[in-house]
Design a protein around this nucleic acid. Structure first.
Lengths: 214, 214, 214, 214
DNA sequence: CCTTAATCGAGACGGTACGTCATGTCTTGGG
DNA sequence: CCCAAGACATGACGTACCGTCTCGATTAAGG
């Protein structure tokens, strides 16, 4: 309930930093990350893409890992909570969210980063904490509510089920070189998620199941 | 009167190449790939790791992509055909194969390469052709035989089902930083594959399902 | 209302170059040139000898020839004009100048460069323009003044005479592997230059004429 | 008084060497030397120019210096002795010899080698012994005979005089990038050599004295 | 004739040095 | 004090050779 923040006791002399530049650098980081991948991303390249001097980048983030972690954190999930009241409705929303443009951007970033994770423990931890777990948790809550309502049996492995759709969508992105679309999301839900939740599979209507249409 | 082959008319002049060096370079490529990732792998690093001059590498592979593709191709699947006669037996073998040391090596290589795939079309194609498809095909054949025997209903999405185990195992490797082990393979099979095939889920006994034990 | 020069409209952004490094590179170039010769001189070697990075060298001189030409140009003759009023006095000064330490350095540079001249037209032209001609011209002016004063007959080939001392000194440096000294300069003047100018030869006193004493 | 030489006690088994290849290598060495200079000459380049394998070169000469020394030695002076009976006649022959095609080739080789002499003592010694001294000695003998006949005064510095023409011709080759021709030889003799020998200078007729015509 | 042994062309090999390029740090001058 | 521009030292990369080595083929002399 207090108003003052810590910045008060330090008079902040000289020219203040331009907050717009922080955002420009973060945005440029995402662009470069998706374009070049984590290993080929350089502070210099980010500075150039942001239209900013190298010193301006280094003054804010002292290492590539820190910058990328903050850039990742800037990609918040669009919808935070899903609760339509019924499992079927929630699943429909999840399916749509899994192939939204925002999610596709997320998958691109994941692909760009994933090869570096075994060599960058900080990045790995941030990746799990900020990227994967929040998305899984949203689905986990949906399934737990469904179980509490009696829509799911106790034998359903909720943790694993919550993993299914993002994992298979990411896998698809890895294998084809670009993020999967709506058709593939529906196929995953219909062929895999529903049986795992104890429902009969729902065949994908007339669409060729081998191809994603985005 | 004989249909001579093309090798006859080229007398192979000069000192012949040492085949042992090919192997050393390929093996070193895999090591470096797993250790450093595709983007950080350099011809020079491979040469050093193989104990070989750079010219010896470039004489055989003119680019990094070609070398890595051949190195990938050297990782043949240990077992080519699985056919025990029953779906249950085949699934048991597949489960074991999915977490064998050889498979774990494969997952490491996949993780190392995957971030580069969107930027390297040749690599992407070789990755699909030589890596993913043969492994999927093996499982696809198992499932098709089971369907022909009447062990699977027509509603089962075989293509998707064949993808399940490797995709989730790779996903696990990406997320934890190292390949998954037997426990996770069994969890995937019990919680996901069996329901997708129309079987009841098989709970993982006493093992903590969150951890992989390798 | 002033005729401003071009430097005004270019604000010279970024960190300015360190002029001290220019000089260090030029000096190191001369050292390396004398030590290794033109063909064995490399930009990398010069950078190392100057204690600077390779990029610092390439930022200023894009090729070996350009660097060496500028290095040559840095070796200005110590004395520009010789005019004592009499031919004898001028000749004495020329003799001394021909074997000064500065001239010896010049001969070393000439020896180092000369083999490359047939293959490097730019170098050849710079060599003639900046090295040879100024030194010859100084002597030519001396002889022309002497002729105007009546100290030289019209039959003397001034152009050839001006060439004599430097040519024979350089020849000596080539043949012995190091620059000639005072004794040889006096021998050349006494035995060759004076007769060519129509004077009687002046024998070299007690010194062994076969050896140079430097 | 014995006929047999050392080769007798070694039966020289196996395939004998082809003497034609020795000559081809030597000739190619001269060509490469003149074309590329001593520093840029490589055993490999010589082998290629001679149409011969590298091993064939190394079997005969174990180092570049040895090969070049032998190649130099193969360039014998065309005329060994000059003795027309009069100084004037001898000088005419010397003038002609100084600008013969064979001499011009010699000057090219000298230019190619001279920059390497300070760094290659063996080469320097061979250069003096096999190249310079024989040519000087021929002229020295001519002048000594003339002095003995009373055609030269005792004050003439014969050693220096014998040096004059070759030195100035080489100098000209160095400065212009290619060997001097007849016109320059006559100019040197008329303007320099004759006065040094106590004769009046002989002006070069109508020719422009600044240019060499070859 | 037939074995033997050295020569020969070709080219593989390890090593080295080069010029280029990219990275992160430092240093200007201006705002 | 911030900011863009860019100089700077360092180091890695791919290339180009070099001199050594190793192969199969050839060639003469000795048995």
């Amino acid at each position: 309930m207090q108003i003052s923040d810590a910045a008060v006791d330090e008079p902040r002399r000289g020219r203040p930093r331009d907050p717009g530049r922080d955002e420009a650098i973060i945005d440029a980081s995402i662009d470069v990350l998706v374009r070049d991948g984590y290993d080929r991303l350089s502070m210099e390249g980010v500075a150039a893409a942001a239209g900013v001097g190298k010193a301006t980048v280094y003054r804010r983030w002292s290492s590539k890992a820190e910058l990328v972690i903050d850039a990742m954190a800037s990609l918040k999930p669009a919808i935070d909570t899903i609760d339509t009241g019924s499992l079927e409705g929630d699943i429909e929303l999840l399916t749509a969210a899994s192939c939204s443009p925002h999610s596709q951007r997320l998958f691109e970033v994941m692909v760009s980063i994933c090869s570096a994770l075994p060599r960058e423990p900080e990045l790995l931890e941030a990746f799990q904490t900020r990227f994967t777990e929040p998305r899984i948790a949203r689905t986990t809550r949906v399934l737990e509510r469904a179980r509490d309502r009696g829509e799911l049996g106790a034998e359903v492995d909720i943790a694993m089920a919550a993993n299914l759709v993002p994992s298979l969508m990411l896998q698809r992105a890895l294998m084809t070189g670009r993020p999967a679309g709506r058709a593939y999301a529906e196929q995953v839900v219909g062929s895999v998620l529903l049986p795992v939740l104890g429902r009969p599979p729902r065949p994908v209507s007339t669409t060729n199941t081998e191809t994603s249409h985005d």
